[in-house]
């Protein structure tokens, strides 16, 4: 069995082995193997190519941009997605604008250990994907499975543009697969994670699993709920979403991020403007609460959507 975290480690090992342009740079990623061990033993296996960085997110990402200009393929680990705000300027103003301004691509992969875990608190739990998706020039991946964590990270390194790779910390150890995939869906294509005909849940990352659990619960009540895993939120596979809504007539978009704007709002906007006639009921969205992410598990478990709250929201939608 291989975990989601091990898949990320294996993808990086493969990228380092296959491509001499690849190196890994981030805090504690060297001999220590990373705060979550996503780079375990890589510094030993690839001497001089997995480097500890000072606590300087702006400079870490800025240096990756320079290295990419000079033909390298850096993989940057932010220790937590939350800390990427310190490097935000380099990501959105420098990396994201480079190709458009100069016609020189900026192939950097920025790994963001994202999302909430019990006890994480306000500064180790955030979901940053919508912020980055807002900016032109970035690709934002949000893998929900072990297979995608592996294959999408390899694709991220191969892509000529800056990729924000939002890997979910809750899935690091919870999610296991039999083996690493040998083939993969292309980036930009969403996946039907569970087929259904009564309503559609569109979601991504850890919320795919909460949504699948909700669908299972609702199946016991006789409902067939379709779950779409977006895989990447930018590009966002509107076609697959619309095709599902065409089958079911009902839409619930679920995300772990804060509620204002964001991915779920984008999905509803697209379906409302491009597929209004497909809807049998007003579309709904479910997000975290509009507060910082709380520390205590009693609060955190209620702050973010769960299978229970998704089921409840879906029952409301099915009643309409």
């Amino acid at each position: 069995m291989i975990t989601y975290l091990e898949a990320i480690r294996e993808a990086q090992a493969k990228a380092l082995a296959d491509d001499p342009r690849v190196y890994i740079y981030g805090q504690d990623v060297g001999q220590f193997g990373g705060a979550f061990k996503a780079t375990k033993n890589l510094a030993q296996e690839f001497p001089g190519r997995v480097l500890d960085a000072p606590i300087s997110e702006d400079a870490i990402i800025g240096s990756a941009i320079g290295a990419a200009i000079e033909g390298m393929r850096p993989i940057i680990e932010m220790q937590f997605a939350d800390f990427s705000t310190v490097g935000f300027n380099q990501i959105v103003n420098h990396a994201a604008t480079m190709n458009w301004r100069t016609q020189l691509p900026c192939p950097i992969t920025i790994r963001l250990p994202s999302g909430g875990t019990a006890g994480g608190g306000p500064f180790h739990s955030q979901s940053m994907e919508a912020l980055y998706a807002h900016y032109p020039g970035l690709i934002v991946m949000t893998p929900a499975t072990v297979e995608d964590a592996y294959s999408m990270l390899l694709e991220a390194v191969a892509i000529d543009d800056p990729v924000i790779f939002c890997e979910h910390k809750y899935l690091y150890y919870h999610l296991k697969a039999e083996s690493l995939p040998t083939e993969a869906m292309p980036t930009g294509k969403a996946r039907v994670a569970r087929a259904g005909r009564d309503a559609t849940i569109v979601t991504y990352s850890a919320m795919v699993h909460e949504s699948l659990a909700a669908a299972e619960e609702l199946a016991g009540e006789g409902w067939e709920i379709e779950v779409i895993d977006l895989r990447s939120i930018k590009p966002l596979d509107t076609d697959t979403v619309l095709a599902s809504v065409a089958r079911t007539g009902r839409l619930l978009a679920v995300g772990e991020a804060f509620p204002w704007g964001g991915v779920t709002a984008e999905i509803l906007a697209r379906v409302a403007s491009e597929g209004y006639d497909l809807l049998d009921a007003p579309p709904r969205r479910l997000n975290a609460k509009d507060t910082p992410v709380p520390y205590h598990p009693n609060l955190w478990g209620t702050h973010r959507p769960t299978a229970r709250t998704i089921s409840a929201e879906m029952r409301e939608l099915l009643r309409r």
Binding site: Y23, G48, R49, S56, D58, A59, I60, I61, G62, S63, A64, I65, G66, A67, A68, I69, E70, G71, M72, P74, N89, Q90, N93, H94, T97
Partner: peptide, 21 residues
């Protein structure tokens, strides 16, 4: 870019790349 100081790490990264290569 207009944000002051932003070009310094980029130059540093170019030099890291030369070293890697």
């Amino acid at each position: 870019i207009s944000h002051l100081g932003a070009m310094i790490p980029a130059v540093a990264g170019c030099l890291m790349a030369r070293r890697f290569r």
